[in-house]
């Protein structure tokens, strides 16, 4: 492989993986932007969905990608229940409590998964898992391509819902001007419920994708929470629209560092943390008002 090809491959790999990042992060951004709630257990829903996909595939042979609508609805309900049972009681209790609560849930679910499924890595061998197509000597994994396309479709759908539907307008209104929204009669309670439902639903779709192109293991969810945070921080906290370019930046940077730095895959793990630190430190120059 000559340098240009290597460069192209690294770029393509980065782009292909960014769709899944964008899906995972957009849910996090939505919950943060609308409910003003940082859900540290976000990735655990993704992890649960990945295991769910694997179990259904190994029992019934159903392709996870075909199941996405059903899984989305199931996890939407799960997210709504999560909001009712756990999020709502701490919404007014302050940030420290929210953080510790969702972190506790995250630890609980991680270790529950560890107890039930064990620490071993699980994958799904869908027929097209290793299939690739090549252009100009650059390989595109078919599964990854599928997944990128599906992510794009879903994100476009989300933006259309946010822009054009009544529900979407309510969501944006609550996110931008909670008090004003209440004045014009928007029920913030149901908006929160829907936003968290969508967030968890999107995480579940990302989880299904994960089970196909990566693997499921108990810690994978938290890893995605962290990467999602990196994306959300770079996009501007709570900014759902900025998620796309931030995901691309994360995916491509990781890919390039993995390819071009000596022992790069090890360092690429540090990249998103540096992005979080850097992103936050740059953004902190906004001055707090009372």
């Amino acid at each position: 492989m000559y340098a240009g090809q290597l460069f192209g491959q690294a770029l393509v790999n980065g782009i292909l993986v960014s769709g899944i990042y964008a899906l995972a992060a957009s849910g996090l951004a939505l919950a943060f932007g609308v409910v003003k709630f940082l859900n540290l257990a976000h990735g655990e829903f993704l992890m649960l969905a990945a295991y769910f996909g694997i179990i259904v595939f190994s029992t019934y042979g159903l392709d996870p990608l075909l199941m996405t609508p059903v899984v989305f609805i199931l996890f939407f309900i799960l997210g709504a229940a999560y909001y009712k049972a756990l999020v709502k009681p701490v919404l007014k209790a302050g940030e420290l409590n929210q953080l510790l609560l969702t972190f506790g849930i995250s630890i609980f679910l991680q270790n529950l998964a560890l107890l039930i499924f064990g620490g071993t890595i699980r994958t799904i061998s869908v027929p097209y898992r290793t299939h690739t197509i090549s252009f100009w000597g650059i390989n595109f994994g078919t599964a990854r391509l599928f997944i990128l396309l599906l992510s794009i479709v879903l994100l476009v759908l989300l933006y259309q819902v946010l822009q054009r539907t009544r529900v979407g307008r309510s969501i944006r209104a609550v996110s931008q001007e909670p008090e004003g929204a209440a004045l014009v009669g928007i029920d913030s309670e149901s908006v929160y419920l829907i936003a968290l439902g969508i967030a968890v639903g999107f995480a579940s779709v990302a989880g299904m994708m994960l089970s196909i192109i990566f693997q499921a293991e108990p810690m994978v969810g938290f890893n995605f929470t962290l990467k999602g945070l990196a994306v959300v921080v770079m996009a501007g906290l709570g900014n759902v629209y900025g998620v796309i370019w931030a995901s691309l930046l994360l995916g491509i940077t990781e890919s390039f560092i993995g390819v071009f730095l000596p022992n790069g895959t090890g360092w690429s793990g540090a990249i998103f943390f540096l992005m979080i630190l850097g992103g936050l430190v740059v953004r902190q120059s906004r001055v707090r008002t009372i």
């Binding site: 962290l226 090890g266 793990g269 630190l277 936050l280």
Partner: peptide, 22 residues
């Protein structure tokens, strides 16, 4: 991280620990 409060500080401190691990 002087101006970061609440969750922002928490995230930054988490990132710090993980960078040290790497």
């Amino acid at each position: 991280t002087l101006r970061l409060s609440g969750i922002y500080f928490a995230i930054a401190s988490l990132a710090f620990s993980e960078v040290l691990l790497v």
